[in-house]
Amino acid sequence: MKSDIILAGVGGQGILSIAAAIGLAAVKENLYIKQAEVHGMSQRGGDVQSNLRISDKPIASDLIPAGKATLILSVEPMESLRYLPLLSENGWLVTNSTPFNNITDYPSTESIIAEIKKVKNHIIIDADAIAKEAGSSRASNIVMLGAASPFLDMPFESIEDGIRQLFGRKGADVVETNLKALRAGRAYTEKNS
């Protein structure tokens, strides 16, 4: 088993929570894990990414080599395209459709969607809308995790447990909302892939 995941977004969008949930699931499955994060200057509204590698064998590099990522999970559509050189031939690109526009030359949504559709395996999901339906607009990153979960090569129950652990100290309500968001994201992908 081997998943090489690029988590992409803009500083402050919560990709590290996604990474943490997957990480907890991987530990439960007794898998090896390496997760390289971006801290520091870029966190101030710049593009950020995390290289998350999970395997049943020891992992060498903290960084995913070019053309080896099995999944790009992006919480922002333009950011999903920034890491295409890393995506493997049969890898999946799963992205939120809601732009985070904090620059003056942000491209048109149509042009972004057109580029994403050129990728063989892709899922475009309005995670913000689905998160709202699930009860919390702040859970859109967890909707994204749910949408990407079928490509993670891990039992869904372990990811659910990861969510329980991650949000446990915030109370049962927060756990339930995030589990709902996770399942809604997964249901979307199951219907649309």
Partner: peptide, 11 residues
């Protein structure tokens, strides 16, 4: 395998 290039529209 070098993967696909970053599309030009990405700023």
């Amino acid at each position: 395998y070098e993967g696909n290039a970053i599309p030009e529209i990405v700023k």
